[in-house]
Amino acid sequence: MKRKGLIVEIISALLIVLFFYTALSKLADPVTFRVVLGKSPLIGKNNVIVSWLVPIAEIMASFLLFVPRFRRAGLYASFVLMTAFTLYVGYMLIFTPDLPCSCGGVITKLGWKSHLLLNITFTILSLVALLLQKKKADEERAKKDHTSLFLQA
């Protein structure tokens, strides 16, 4: 059980690094991020709202992952965000691969294909952490129930 907890903590830490770093990079240069999003056929004129929503969502997910009490919610948020990002990058790779990437910081230099691979990896990691966290919680509940039954007897 300890090992499961450690794996969840490590994956959560990796997700915090990813979300917090990319959110800071996007907020540091909001004009470029907004202009690049505006070129995307999927986002287009909604670029202003999306350019604020994405880093805010990333910071919120980082906060939820940071606090152990909210980690499960953070992992759900991470999985949803990473799935959305993966689908978006997949779409861009197929339909408009010549547009510059609107990712944050050094991830911009990865290119669409490497970015897609990175996103798939993090989506899988967040799912693994979510399942492990759930299993750990179930085991803890079962152990608690067993102890209370033993004490009653």
């Binding site: 903590e9 915090i16 800071l24 540091a28 470029t32 202009v35």
Partner: peptide, 24 residues
Amino acid sequence: FSLMAVTVAVGAFAFTPRKVHSSS
């Protein structure tokens, strides 16, 4: 682990070279 992660993220951000301008 979470504190280490935040430190790494802030450190990486601080050492990422900034762009000179902010538009196309």
